[in-house]
Nucleic acid binder design. Structure first.
Length: 321
DNA sequence: TCCTCCCTGTTC
DNA sequence: GAACAGGGAGGA
């Protein structure tokens, strides 16, 4: 369940594989995985991936459209492709001859960047020659791109539960996307005062407010539970009832938890992998998430599992008073 | 503001 | 074979 730290990790690990690459082909294998507002991904042929970024839980590929094959697309400024991984989405590059899997929702074929490529030996993995591929596979493990490859590659958007979404468009198109338009501030750069202001007067449970992407962009179930535990706040408590001091502590705890998770490449519960196919390590640090019934790491009493805002929520009734 | 639905693999 | 996981849309 990729949240801010996981998407940040995917962006960081995907960047060396796709930055500077030209999209030679794109096809959507499941129509509902492409947002209705999107420029058809097929029309991105010829676009160059300039940069990989993130906004909230959205992964962003910034595109240079000046050499796009499609005439309309060629005139686009600020063209970008947003990917929401939702529950089970994954973005990884593979050798150019790799066939899509049963859960592949979109395939984007990439040509190598024209500038000086990565190390020569690693280029073998692209593998026209089986012997050369075997040699590289031995070095890299299996043909997961644990090294950076030259030559053509395929970027797969795999998504088992098919909740994920891709949207390509200009700034104008993004402005018509309510989810994008209403995205709240990034929690890592938000100030204590702005946070306190944005939750003041909210009648819902503080956990529901943390999950609201209009309030904070990028927080999901894991980091809401973990930050509330770290701050010693009951997740069911009305947001408006938090004191100024508690609101500040909560934001500080949230920022600490997010930064710590990013430093450990995020959390892997089931499906999440970064763009190199690696799992994160932060799940080993969870204080409460997924630990209902187990002893609290602070006081030793059993953690309770309840539903808040329709989401399973674990907290310590003793430490989160 | 709250509830239901979407979707599919895993667990009970 | 039902329950569960959960982000966000849409309706009550």
């Amino acid at each position: 369940m990729p949240e801010l730290p996981e998407v940040e990790t995917v962006a960081r690990t995907l960047r060396p594989h796709v930055q500077g690459c030209v999209i030679t082909n794109a096809h959507v294998l499941r129509a509902t995985s492409q947002h209705p507002l999107s420029v058809p991904l097929e029309n991105l042929r010829g676009c160059r991936i300039e940069e990989v970024g993130r906004r909230g839980k959205l992964l962003l590929l910034y595109l240079d459209a000046s050499h796009a094959e499609n005439e309309k697309v060629r005139t686009c400024k600020d063209l970008r492709l947003a990917v929401h991984l939702r529950m089970t989405g994954r973005l990884m590059t593979y050798a150019a001859n790799t066939e899509p899997g049963s859960h592949t929702r979109c395939v984007i074929d990439l040509d190598a960047p024209s500038a000086e490529g990565p190390k020569k030996a690693e280029a073998l993995c692209v593998g026209e020659a089986p012997a050369a591929q075997a040699e590289c596979e031995q070095r890299c493990g299996e043909d997961k791109p644990s090294c950076v490859h030259t030559g053509p590659r395929r970027l797969f958007f795999d998504d088992v539960r098919a909740f994920g979404l891709m949207l390509a468009g200009t700034a104008d198109i993004f402005a018509r996307w309510p989810f994008w338009n209403d995205l709240g501030p990034e929690p890592l750069t938000l100030t204590e005062n702005s946070f306190a202001k944005s939750i003041a007067g909210k009648k819902s449970a503080i956990k529901a407010v943390l999950l609201d992407q209009k309030v904070l962009a990028g927080v999901g179930n894991i980091y809401a539970d973990e930050s509330l535990f770290a701050a010693g706040i009951d997740p069911r408590r009305k947001a408006a009832d938090l004191t100024q001091k508690q609101a500040k502590r909560l934001l500080n705890c949230l920022q600490d938890v997010l930064l710590l998770s990013i430093s450990q490449c995020g959390s892997s519960i089931r499906d999440y992998r970064d763009a190199d196919g690696n799992v994160g390590a932060f799940q080993n640090t969870f204080a409460v998430y997924g630990r209902g019934g187990q002893p609290c790491k602070k006081c030793g009493r059993p953690l309770e599992k309840v539903k808040v805002a329709g989401r399973s929520t674990v907290y310590c009734p003793h430490c989160q008073g």
